[in-house]
């Protein structure tokens, strides 16, 4: 406790000294203009955006499942069963999570895949099941708030309904992406989503499964985070 108080006093005197040195140095000169035409050039029609995103992400080992607004939950389920996943972590409070759970239950009711992948809700604080999360979950399912065409990338805003670690800790991350939400570039996405004005505690872009090239520049996937990233790409462009 003493340490914290001392350090806070030291910190505020450091703050004053640093800021006064910076102010003493003076701004010096007018601000150079920002010419963003190089960013504005990065624009594509909707279908091309979808293709670009897919190409960019496939280049870094992201896998794609094609789906429609009507069948994506079935596509997700078929994938889980095909891969023999024991469970799939999902956020029951999110729109996509709720829909997934509802269709899963309906399928079960219809007698399909009784012994298949179990849905596992992320409905407690992580402290309550950290060990299980790290060692007992096969895959995590999340929605996205958009995508980025230029380089390929998914935009996520984790929250109470879809916690942060769902897209990080399980070895497989299944993400739902609606083609109509794909933006041209990260720059245009920031503007479209209003991220520049307000951000939740965590937001992120993901372009592929976790990777490293730290051993002899040889790419290896699945170093700390997911080993596989599966995008359920919902083609809703005709409807939009």
């Amino acid at each position: 406790m003493t340490d914290a108080t001392t350090s806070s006093a030291a910190s505020s005197s450091a703050r004053a000294a640093i800021l006064s040195r910076l102010r003493a140095a003076g701004g010096g000169g007018p601000l150079p203009p920002l010419d963003v035409t190089v960013l504005e050039r990065r624009q594509w029609p909707a279908r091309e955006r979808m293709e670009r995103l897919r190409k960019g992400m496939e280049a870094v080992h992201t896998e794609f499942l094609e789906a429609t607004p009507g069948n994506w939950t079935a596509v997700a389920r078929a994938f889980c069963d095909r891969e023999g996943l024991k469970n799939l972590l999902y956020g029951p409070g999110s729109e996509a999570g709720a829909r997934l759970a509802a269709d899963w239950a309906a399928d079960r009711g219809a007698g399909q895949g009784a012994g298949g992948t179990q849905l596992m809700p992320y409905d407690r604080p992580v402290e309550a099941f950290k060990d299980e999360l790290f060692n007992g979950v096969d895959a995590g399912f999340t929605g996205t708030v958009g995508g980025v065409a230029e380089t390929g990338g998914l935009l996520l805003m984790p929250d109470a309904a879809e916690p942060r670690l769902m897209s990080l800790v399980p070895p497989i991350h299944l993400a739902l992406l609606r083609a109509s939400t794909i933006q041209d570039s990260f720059w245009s996405a920031v503007k479209a989503l209003g991220w520049g004005r307000r951000l939740p505690p965590n937001a992120l872009m993901i372009s592929g499964p976790s990777k490293t090239a730290d051993i002899e520049q040889t790419l290896a996937y699945g170093v700390h985070g997911p080993k596989r990233l599966i995008v359920i790409l919902v083609d809703d462009l005709e409807l939009a």
């Binding site: 870094v60 992320y122 409905d123 407690r124 604080p125 992580v126 990338g153 984790p158 929250d159 109470a160 916690p163 942060r164 990260f186 991220w195 951000l199 939740p200 505690p201 965590n202 937001a203 992120l204 872009m205 993901i206 372009s207 592929g208 499964p209 976790s210 990777k211 985070g225």
Partner: peptide, 15 residues
């Protein structure tokens, strides 16, 4: 692979 934006600690209701 990741571009991570951190704007605060665990928020209200976050798990």
């Amino acid at each position: 692979t990741y571009f991570n934006l951190i704007t605060g600690p665990r928020g209200t209701g976050e798990k």
